[in-house]
Design a binder for these strands. Structure first.
Length: 557
RNA sequence: UGGGGCGUAGCCAAGCGGUAAGGCAGCGGGUUUUGAUCCCGUCAUGCGUAGGUUCGAAUCCUACCGCCCCAGCCA
């Protein structure tokens, strides 16, 4: 820790005090996803928080699937979630855990509550129960089944477990206070009937504990010291504590809440993400435009960028909307340090060097990274015919344009200085080729006349390169807050969020690029080979993110 | 209008009675064979509002205002 380290957030302060005052001897946290969808950037905040805190204080963090609702959960999601957590760079403590591992114990504790006269089987239908619950401003009224005897409740609950009642016919409720101002305390349901198989327990059960009845006790069983969740669960804390206070649990974890992540120009809601997938707005959960961890991974975002982002945005209790620009900054920042450099011409314009011998080829060397010497140098074949970017040539331009202009000089990145001498156009008047001369005495040094070209442009040999397709991604939504108020988020889906470029020319070394690892295509952005599309001969590259572009900014002034 | 939270710059966020950290974005400049990176400078007389306490208030008190969450047998 240095003097310039980040100030601690409220949870770090709480843990420090708990440790200092002996309230807890070991920090144990948990990340408790429900396996009903894919993890997204919002989950990353929780993962980084829970695993990060455990790491920081020498404790451990469990991965526990909160699987109390077989109607919504699937094994497929379990696997995807494990993969995403590992990818982010975290290791959970011991075996993966499931709330369903504790169903037997939870059932015993339900019995305990019944015996203590603190739970009862209620035969109100869901609709009736809603009416008895009262409203935000009016107290509820007691269920007519509230005073059944312990014996009767025991028998009825047994029948529930044995499948003798239909779904919705009855439920087990905690007997707390129907007049409580906190609605969660108005005799909450703790067991309901669901006659369906569970992905972990099969058909062993037809009754399943509710979140409220399962979560705190699971925390207690696992010896969780700090049970961290999002703000909307704050109203559940009195219930969380009520169960732990009324049951013979091995420990009493404390619940703390923090504000979930919101990102502008993005939706992070499993339901909405699923809709984008189901209705074909994107290619799947791992479409590179998706804020899912699998989508970001496929796009080439390094896990460290997401971790740094989570560190950067902080942890507080106030609702906020983080600018995606911060995420983009973290991605560029990480990639700038780690990505090998390469050249790729997206929209090719042919260049012929009239004073360079036909058939001649020399191999130039270029550094793998401007400051890191541990990344291997590359070999660049240099030939008479090359490709440069269409937008890097103009017949005439003012001094601000620092690229190739007719009659002027420019530096070819990692190669020679050339001068444009002649333009070849087709019948439509479009420029199809630029005839240049090359100054062979400029490799690694300025021209003999001492006049240094002010521009440097990238290029690729027309004879030796890799044909490829490049996919440029833009924000999926054009509205900074797609789902605010009464807006339909689908209305602001950006129709130009995917732009496919064919006929791109990448430097030869990129033929062996591996999926998932990003390169910087110099002057352009960061790109990685797609894991699903493309072939060995013709790879597809995804643009992870563009470089900061002050030239575009300058032009828009 | 019941209960629970939250209001510090365009955005995120420190601050906990001694006179507003830091980051992102922006703006200005320097270096540069990437218009990238990097470096330097700049960016809140004011902390939701109004009163009060105090030598001194973003921090304490009072009253307002605004925003978020809760009436699933979802999590």
């Amino acid at each position: 820790m240095t003097s310039e380290s980040k100030p601690a957030h409220f949870l770090q302060n709480i843990i420090r005090e708990d440790l200092a005052e002996g309230r807890v001897s070991q920090v144990v946290t948990r990340f408790p996803p429900e396996p009903n969808g894919y993890l997204h950037i919002g989950h990353a905040k929780s993962i980084c928080l829970n695993f990060g805190l455990a790491q920081e204080f020498g404790g451990s963090c469990n991965l526990r699937f909160d699987d109390t609702n077989p109607a919504k959960e699937e094994e497929e999601y379990v696997e995807a979630i494990k993969r995403d957590v590992s990818w982010l760079g975290y290791q959970w403590n011991g075996e993966v855990k499931y709330t369903s591992d504790y169903f037997d114990q939870l059932y015993e504790w339900a019995l305990h509550l019944i015996r203590e006269g603190k739970a009862y089987v209620c035969h109100l239908t869901p609709e009736e129960a809603r009416q008895y619950r009262g409203t935000l401003t009016e107290p509820g009224t007691n269920s007519p089944y509230r005073d059944r005897s312990v014996e009767e409740n025991l028998a009825l609950f047994e029948q529930m477990k044995n499948g003798e009642f239909a779904e919705g016919e009855c439920s087990l409720r905690a007997k707390i206070d129907m007049a409580a101002p906190n609605i969660n305390l108005r005799d909450p349901v703790i067991y309901r009937i669901k006659k369906m198989a569970h992905h972990q327990t099969g058909d062993k059960w037809c009754i399943y504990p509710s979140y409220d009845f399962a979560h705190g006790q699971s925390d207690a069983i696992e010896g969780i010291s700090h049970s961290i969740c999002t703000l909307e669960f704050e109203d559940h804390k009195p219930l969380y504590d009520w169960f732990l206070d009324n049951l013979p649990v091995p420990s009493h974890p404390r619940q703390y809440e923090f504000a979930r992540l919101n990102l502008n120009y993005t939706v992070v809601s499993k339901r909405k993400l699923k809709q984008l997938v189901d209705e074909g707005y994107v290619d799947g959960w791992d479409d590179p435009r998706m804020p899912t961890l699998s989508g970001q991974r496929r796009r080439g975002v390094p896990p460290a960028a997401i971790r740094n982002f989570c560190e950067m945005i902080g942890v507080t209790r106030s609702d906020s909307v983080v600018d995606v620009g911060m995420l983009e900054y973290c991605i560029r920042d990480e990639l700038d340090k780690t990505a090998p450099r390469a050249m790729c011409v997206l929209e090719p314009l042919k260049v012929t060097l009239r004073n360079y011998p036909e058939g001649r080829e020399e191999v130039l060397s270029a550094p793998g990274h401007p400051v890191r010497d541990d990344l291997p140098a590359r070999e660049l074949p240099f030939t008479r015919t090359l490709y440069i970017e269409k937008e890097d040539f103009r017949e005439e331009a003012n001094k601000k344009y620092k690229r190739l202009v007719l009659g002027k000089k420019v530096r070819l990145r990692n190669a020679y200085v050339i001068q444009a001498e002649e333009v070849v156009k087709n019948e439509a008047g479009e420029i199809v080729e630029v005839i240049c001369s090359v100054d062979l005495d400029t490799l690694g040094k300025d021209p003999a006349d001492g006049v240094k070209p002010k521009g440097v442009i990238h290029w690729v040999s027309a004879d030796k390169h890799v044909e490829c397709e490049v996919r440029l991604y833009d924000r999926l939504f054009s509205d900074p807050n797609p789902d605010a108020g009464g807006k339909n988020f689908l209305d602001s889906v950006n129709p130009d969020s995917l732009k496919v470029l064919e006929g791109c020319k990448a430097e030869i070394g990129l033929a062996t690029a591996a999926a998932g690892i990003s390169y910087q295509f110099e002057r352009n952005g960061y790109f990685c080979r797609d894991s699903e599309y493309g072939s060995a001969e013709k790879p597809v590259f995804n643009r992870t993110i563009g470089l900061r572009d002050s030239w575009a900014k300058e032009q828009n002034k």
